[in-house]
Simulated assay, not measured.
Amino acid sequence: MKADPAVQRRLLDLAEVDAELARLDYRRRTLPEVAEIAEAEKAARAKKDAQVAVATQLGDLDREVTRQEKEIDQVRARVERDDKLLQGGTVAAKQMTDLEHEIDTLHRRQAALEDDLLELMERREALQMDAQHAEAELAKAEAAVADATTRRDEAFADLETQEARAKATRNAMLPAFPEPLLALYNRVREQKGTGAALLRSRRCGACRLELDRVVISQIKAAAADDVVRCEECGAVLVRTAESGL
């Protein structure tokens, strides 16, 4: 394949643009914010689970408190009813004794229930503090996710701007290259990562390997418009005064 030496030299400019696009793509795939978001989301899920667990316990305890209060109200109502019977003077002596015994039993039951209720309320107060703490921790975790997401989106936007600029530069350069040369360059780039490189001091600028004397002799004997390639990586070798030929 042949191509004007000046056109071959312009392949180096194209290769530099492609290298910049590759660097931008690598940065996009390895942005630290991406890993940070994954960790922050994992932490947020754990905080959410903790918050739900505390809220569930608090809900269960609230139902127990309600049940306990209802039972206390029922005991109080029975005490009031028995007191009215006693105060009414309409019951026989035997029934009065039974009522007094029942009232005494109900008072003891009420006292026990109220002690249990007090313990439940203390537990509820502690759980409410736990719930507030869990909600605060969840809010912090969600804020961390939002912050990392904002920074990632800003970085992506910056990368997109740079990529658009580099792609526009690349597209503007393409008409200068003959189709066969461009096809060869693109094929090698897709397979090896670098389509063209400078031959400097008898070393390939793509794979960084020094060419042996036989290859150097062959390249030196080639016409200026011959397209020569590295035998190791296949990249088009662009010859200049720096090539050491």
Rank of each mutant, 00 (worst) to 15 (best):
D62N: 10
A53S: 10
T30P: 02
A35F: 00
L86H: 06
R78P: 00
D25I: 03
E80G: 04
E36Y: 05
K2W: 01
Y26D: 11
A139R: 11
R203F: 02
R151V: 02
A235K: 04
V215R: 12
M121G: 13
R170W: 01
L99H: 09
E102G: 03
E64K: 12
I37P: 02
E102R: 15
A176I: 06
E80I: 08
A148V: 03
Q68W: 01
R45D: 09
E102Q: 14
V65I: 14
N171G: 08
A40S: 07
A92D: 15
A221V: 02
D25Y: 05
C207M: 01
Y185F: 10
T90C: 01
A112R: 11
R208V: 09
V188E: 04
F156L: 15
A93Y: 08
E39Y: 09
E69S: 10
D116I: 00
M1I: 06
R28T: 03
A35K: 09
A176V: 08
R28W: 04
L237E: 09
L181I: 04
A141R: 10
L113H: 10
E80R: 11
A183D: 13
R10A: 11
K42T: 06
A155S: 13
L24W: 00
A134F: 05
Y185M: 05
Q68A: 11
P32S: 04
D49C: 03
S201M: 08
Q8W: 02
A148T: 00
R203G: 10
A77Y: 07
A222Y: 03
Q132V: 14
A144W: 11
D158F: 09
V79P: 01
K47W: 07
A139M: 08
H101F: 07
R202D: 06
E20K: 12
V214R: 12
D116G: 15
T169M: 07
D49V: 08
A35M: 07
Q68N: 12
E100G: 11
T149R: 15
T105D: 11
L11S: 07
M1F: 04
A136M: 09
S243T: 09
N186C: 02
F156E: 15
R239D: 06
K84P: 02
A22I: 02
L85A: 10
C230Y: 00
V79Y: 03
D130F: 03
R76P: 03
L245W: 06
